[in-house]
Design a protein around this nucleic acid. Structure first.
Lengths: 238, 238
DNA sequence: GCAAAAGTGTTGCTTTTACACCCATGA
DNA sequence: TCATGGGTGTAAAAGCAACACTTTTGC
């Protein structure tokens, strides 16, 4: 064996996005414990010997939230040879996996979650939402992964507009959708024109319900109809 | 150590696209030798102990073509636990890497090459172009990788139109660009309107040269100006 | 009534699409 | 002269952007 070739550990890490009531993108982070110190990180795991990476990511998401089938998308393999060379990270991996780990490459996933959904982790004692621009310094290359995930989630929504509804409540106003879309697309869109366009789509179904207790004209609630969307699968928003 | 976690080998595999004179997408495949038999496969390699996957892919591309800096894009990690369980594949890996390899995951890359560029492989004795719909059955999950790469290369060009010029000669006619674009986009585009639109772009620069020996009005050659493209980076073709 | 946001309508501009028409060249 | 494709023009249709106007609600 040419010893230059490497046998390595492989993990998956998941960046789960949520959209909060202050119109900010948030990410789910968990706590790791090291020498009495607590530190937050992305949820992740080594893969099992008989497990595909997609299955490992699905497992991590389930252990994280208690939700059975979350939408997910692999977006990049991070394999910098130095990505797990920090002393604390090596120490933590030794504790977590009861073994000295020389090198670890990770496959990063995106996922989306309604921020009001109850989080019922079977693995982590502490799971919290963090607004993306308030994420502190994280172990490994997790900050890098998050930065790149932001670019990817935008591309994902450009490619398949329907996944945006994973971030909204089942019933939502067009203003909510507008604010989410604006947070993701970065370019200014006129809300009136947005309203007209969105409400013209057949898969955006108006409900009989309207907002209450607002100090202005109440907005109508809408729901997303995935079946109609799939039938027409047009390009929607350019 | 929880022995369910796995230590595995990691490789990169590269799908290099070319566009031939019959308007077909082609892929570069290499030969592997096993028991006097020859079989073709995607070019690839295990990664070195101090090597990032992007660097490994760059190395594979260089060993494959002799070209220094080829454009490349990571597109997916393939990690099905059964992807290297075929007897012949296990045998071949034993010969190639002088070691029994229990499991191998691979990170797949896209690359683009002008099909007339001279191929000067320092590693493979046989390197050939195959039209995508004439690719035979390949080892591992290489057919699957190629199928998914086709979807990805289309997305890539939608996202960054400028990389399409990696597949064309330095000077090209608008018909050539049209045929390549048509082969990639699958939906019908009117060639006259395409011509008008393309020739209106400032980064498509007309040359003084025109075709010779054609039995119709000779078409003008154009070149792509990357500097002008970068300055204006508009969305070009929707 | 006022402020604020919902929701609709109008208008002009840009882009797309479908063709018509003339040009250049080899056979 | 004919076939083939190059290249330009035009006009209708569709889509987009800017913004005016009316509606609804709480204070």
């Amino acid at each position: 064996m040419n010893s230059n070739f490497i046998h390595t550990y492989v993990s998956v890490d998941c960046v789960v996005f949520g959209f909060d009531h202050e119109n900010r993108l948030n990410i789910l982070l968990v706590e790791r414990h090291l020498d009495e110190k607590r530190q937050i990180k992305l949820p992740g795991s080594l893969i099992f010997s008989d497990e595909d990476v997609d299955d490992a990511a699905q497992r991590v998401l389930h252990e994280l939230t208690g939700i059975k089938k979350m939408i997910l998308k692999q977006f990049k393999c991070f394999a910098d040879p130095m990505r797990a060379n920090n002393e604390n990270d090596i120490k933590w991996m030794g504790m977590e996996y009861k073994h000295h780990i020389d090198r670890i490459i990770t496959v990063a996933y995106l996922s989306l979650c309604k921020i009001d959904h109850k989080i019922n982790s079977t693995k982590y004692s502490t799971v919290d939402w963090f607004p993306v621009d308030e994420v502190p310094s994280l172990p490994f290359d997790h900050n890098k992964i998050i930065n790149e995930s932001l670019v990817e989630v935008r591309k994902w929504i450009e490619l398949d507009f329907s996944i945006i509804f994973e971030l909204l409540p089942k019933k939502f106003t067009i203003r909510q959708l507008y604010q989410l879309y604006s947070a993701l697309s970065e370019k200014y869109i006129d809300i009136k024109n947005f309203h007209k366009k969105i409400s013209s789509f057949s898969y955006i179904v108006p409900l009989d319900e309207i907002e209450t207790n607002v100090s202005h004209r109440a907005a109508r609630y809408y729901k997303f109809d995935a079946k109609i969307y799939k039938k027409n699968n047009t390009k929607l928003i350019k």
